[in-house]
Structure formats: structure tokens, C-alpha cells
Design a protein around this nucleic acid. Structure first.
Lengths: 205, 205
DNA sequence: AACATTTAATAGGGATCGCTATTTTAATGG
DNA sequence: CCATTAAAATAGCGATCCCTATTAAATGTT
């Protein structure tokens, strides 16, 4: 009874999510401008008209592939950050999870969002705005968690949570860049430990 | 007598350094893959064959434009870092100078090297290797200064200078990314101040 | 079997990509 | 004035870019 309700007409050869996964991987590795529609159709095993009927356009496919990938990570990372752990420990695990994502053995290095479309041709400005928006949203998530920590007396009330969030955002972006340049997981985590030494109230030795 | 020794033949319409400056600005704003040879020739006011006779190829032009730009900054930044100031203060001024470079009013945002060609088509792998090499060199410069600080008892002898250098490298890359996303100079400097709080031996309040 | 519906495959269009063979122009040297 | 030198301008090459009009194939329905 769980039948996928076979519709009429010729059946699809490519599952939509499989296609998005393949596209995400290509965009992740080569960037938006470095990935051609020919690359995409070849990797998916389809012809150009199928790509356009399934996803609309290259830009729409990129957007959907980003949504698809981001939403897969968001659940776990949100759980880590919003857990009952002390904010400092939650932040550490959150950053470790991102470091793990930057250095997965069978996936492209770095983060698909953190360092994407920073430079771009004018015609791709709207794509750049999209990735910038995702980065800003991620920073706002951090800031909201820090604001809550202030309210719950885990952080001094004078804490500049905006700058604090953007600082750890910079670490996230720097980790992605260095992962692209070949940095290993252990190095990224050593960097995180250093960055956590800047946490308000810490005494470094 | 300081005559530029007018050679025979038709004189050049475009000065080489002026051309490199224009090219650097375009590559800086749009990235390597986002800048076309047509963009470059149009901005320089020349025809394609002139570009190729002057600079060899698009990739060679990118390399020369990078060298041209980097060498302009390197003198001042090296002076700051190698000055007689305490290493901690030298590092602060060094990072501030980079923040200023990321947010020059009449130039593209971010750094031309820090966040360049992180993702790329396969055919541009050699270009990516080049920018990655420049980033690594910059990190090694930091590490060398920190090693000197260890020798001169400005830092504990157990200091992991490699990780320390890569941590501040990550800050530099994160600042460039956020400048590309619109961050202002003051924000970048607040982030630097936070990053300096991670300096070994600091007591944060 | 014939039809309706939905997708896949073929083939290619118009624009732009990086680049170059050839010709023209502008200077100096004799 | 002519020859020589060197750079600029014209014109366009083959490849690839993103995308689509059209045709063929595979299913459920009648």
C-alpha cells in the first residue's frame, strides 16, 4: 500500500534527490561558475532538456542543491547548538561538527556555503546574494544563541554578541578556506581550540 | 639623460603597470573564472592580440597581476611585522593593515589572495595552486615571526607556532570573506581584537 | 489495440569563451 | 624618402557556454 502511486506517463529515470545530491557535490567542488551544465548533465546521466524540466535553470538548480544540502546539516547542528550544554561547550561541538564537514574523506573539502561565490561576474550577482544570505543566517543563529546565553547569565551582559558571532563566523570561513587548501581535520580542531581561548571570561595559560 | 630610451617601432599605447593594475582590479572583484578576456581588453582599452602579446595568456596575466599587487603590499606589511614592536603589537598592526586593505572605499572588498579560487573547474587547478601557494607563504611568514618571538622569549617555548599562524590566517581569510559580504572596517577590527584575546598568556575579562 | 499523459532523447541556436593569423599603423635609422 | 622595426587593429577560429524546439519512447487508461 506504500506504493509511490505510480503516475501515468513515462517514468523518471533520475530521482530528484539523487540529482540534487550529484549537483551539490559538483557545485561544492568546482563552485557555481566553475560548474557547467554539461558537467551536471553528464554526472547525472541525463540530457540537457531533462535538467531544465526538473530544475528550471542552472541558477535554480544551484539554489535547490544548496537548500537540499544545508537542510541535511541544519538539524544536527541546530541540536548541538541549542542543546542543554553550557554555551561554551555547545559552541565547541558545533565548530567541531563543521570541521568534520570540511574534511570528509569522500567529499570535496571545505564548506559548500562558507566560501562560495565570494568573487563573481556581474551576471551572477543574484547567486552571490543567495550564498551571502545563507552565511548571514548562520551568523544570526550563532548570535541568537549567544544572546540567550547573556539572558541566562552564561555570558556577561555587556558582551558584544554580534561581534562574537561574526568572529566565530570568520573562523568557520577560515576553516573552509584552509580545508580547500588541504588542511586536515586535526589542524582545524586545533584552530578551534585556539579560537575558543578568545571566549569572554577565559584565562589562557 | 633619464630618457626612457625610445625604442624603434610603434610606441605602446598602454603602460604595462597600468594594465596590470586594471587587470588586478577586475580579477579582484570578479575572480579568475568570473573575469573574461573581453572584460580585460575592454577595461584596458586594447584589442585581444595586444593583451596576448603583452601578457601571454589569461593565466599568465593573472599571475603577473597577483605579483604586481602582492609586492605593493608586502613591503609595508613586512615592515610592520618585523618591526621592533612586541610581537603582539606588531601582529595587531599587521592585522589592522589587512583589515584596511579589505575595506578600501574605491577598491573591491576583501583580499585578492585570501579568498581567491577556492573552488574551481578542473582546468583551472594550476591557478588555484598558485593562490593557495600565496596563502601558504603568508602563513609561513607569520609562523616565522612567531618562531622568532619564541626564541626571543616573547612567547612560551612550548607554543604551537604553526597552529597559531594558521589560526590568524583563518582570521585573515574570514575577514576577507565577510568584507566581500559587506562588512565594514570597524567590524573587522573588533573581530581582530577578539582574535588577539586568544594570544597565549592573555587574561581576558 | 488505441489513446492520453508524461518523460527522455535528438539536434542544434545564439552568445561568449580564450586565443591568433594577418594586415595596418606609427615610430626610428639610414 | 625609403627600409626596418615594433606595436595596434581587423577579423575570425574552434570550442564551449546556457538553454530549447521538436521528436521519440514508455507508461496507465479505456
Amino acid at each position: 500500500m506504500d506504493q509511490p502511486a505510480r503516475k501515468r506517463g513515462r517514468p523518471r529515470l533520475l530521482d530528484r534527490d539523487v540529482g540534487l545530491d550529484i549537483a551539490a557535490r559538483l557545485f561544492w567542488e568546482r563552485g557555481y561558475e566553475g560548474t557547467s551544465t554539461a558537467d551536471l548533465t553528464k554526472a547525472m546521466g541525463i540530457n540537457p532538456p531533462t535538467l531544465y524540466s526538473m530544475f528550471g535553470s542552472k541558477e535554480e538548480l544551484y539554489r535547490q542543491a544548496l537548500d537540499f544540502s544545508v537542510s541535511r546539516e541544519n538539524g544536527r547542528r541546530s541540536e548541538i547548538l541549542q542543546s542543554s550544554l553550557p554555551v561554551y561547550e555547545a559552541l565547541r561541538l558545533y565548530l567541531y561538527d563543521i570541521a568534520d564537514g570540511d574534511t570528509q574523506p569522500d567529499k570535496p573539502p571545505g564548506c559548500m556555503v562558507s566560501t562560495a561565490v565570494l568573487q563573481h561576474a556581474e551576471e551572477n550577482a543574484s547567486v552571490a546574494r543567495m550564498t551571502a544570505g545563507l552565511r548571514e543566517a548562520s551568523i544570526q543563529t550563532l548570535k541568537a544563541r549567544f544572546d540567550r546565553a547573556v539572558e541566562e547569565d552564561e555570558l556577561p551582559s555587556a558582551t558584544d554578541t554580534d561581534t562574537l558571532a561574526r568572529f566565530y563566523g570568520a573562523i568557520i570561513q577560515g576553516m573552509s578556506a584552509q580545508a580547500c587548501d588541504g588542511a586536515c581535520n586535526a589542524l582545524l580542531k586545533r584552530m578551534i581550540d585556539l579560537a575558543l581561548a578568545a571566549w569572554p571570561g577565559k584565562i589562557i595559560t
